[in-house]
């Protein structure tokens, strides 16, 4: 508010100077003076980065994706008639199982076309999120670590906790098997493989292998994902028209 008044008062003598300082400020902020402008997009982008944060708030050094931020956004995307498709960008190290499953179920139950791209890494609980989309892509250099669900901290009632964890793992496996082309046996084999990870059981699946196993639908990046989402949007529109007729 104050700034505006000041601007008005000093507009004429300082106009040139102010213009220049505006550019300087922009360069300080962005490292460049101009940013491209474009019309409204019918495809929205959801980035899932760092840790998937669930019931426990993580220390601030961690980069996290908070599921309570994403769930309402997914509803908003579903409801907004101007948004026709969704691209999900994944570069995550995993995190809370139930938060990850919540996101996966939300994405899987959307009526609008969804396409996911795994960039860098889509580890652990990132796997169900990646396969939750209608079509999934993985960058050739990206990896997905598949390993059993684990727990750290104090455990009260070992057999019960073990059973609980086992059920939780079963939910993850079921979700992945139901939403991708991988066979349950193959996924479990990857999950419990020995000798692949230095201090753990599991497998680090690289881009092309993930596609070979049927876990991910294709190798690709932005271009392929945008092509696919537009193709799915067109298909959706055709279906709607048929229903109307």
């Amino acid at each position: 508010m104050n700034n505006k008044n000041e601007k008005k008062e000093t507009q004429q003598p300082n106009e040139g100077q102010e213009n220049q300082s505006g550019i300087v400020q922009k360069i300080q902020q962005l490292g460049q003076s101009n940013v491209a402008q474009a019309p409204d997009s019918n495809v929205h982008v959801l980035t899932i980065i760092g840790q998937i944060e669930g019931h426990v708030q993580l220390p601030p050094q961690n980069k996290t994706t908070k599921y309570e931020h994403l769930l309402p956004q997914l509803i908003a995307i579903e409801q907004n008639p101007k948004i026709e498709g969704l691209v999900i960008l994944l570069n995550t190290v995993g995190g809370d199982v139930e938060a990850g499953l919540a996101l996966s179920e939300m994405i899987a139950s959307m009526s609008k076309p969804t396409v996911s791209i795994v960039l860098g890494g889509g580890h652990s609980i990132g796997v169900p999120i990646a396969v939750a989309a209608n079509h999934s892509f993985i960058a050739p250099t990206a990896t997905m670590t598949i390993h059993p669900v684990r727990l750290t901290g104090l455990v009260i009632g070992v057999p019960q906790t073990f059973e609980y964890l086992d059920k939780m793992q079963e939910r993850v496996i079921d979700f992945v098997v139901n939403h991708s082309n991988i066979k349950e046996e193959k996924f479990k084999e990857l999950m419990f493989a020995k000798g692949n990870l230095t201090r753990d059981i599991g497998t680090n699946v690289v881009g092309t292998n993930a596609v070979d196993y049927g876990l991910i639908d294709g190798i690709g990046g932005v271009k392929e994902a945008m092509q696919k989402v537009n193709e799915l949007i067109d298909k959706n529109k055709d279906m709607d028209e048929q229903v109307i007729q």
Partner: peptide, 20 residues
């Protein structure tokens, strides 16, 4: 925190900018 890619092209929302 937005899903609209166009928001990220908006100068007002560029990282480092001072909110007014």
């Amino acid at each position: 925190m937005s899903t609209d890619p166009q928001d990220f092209l908006d100068e007002k929302f560029t990282p480092g900018s001072i909110l007014s």
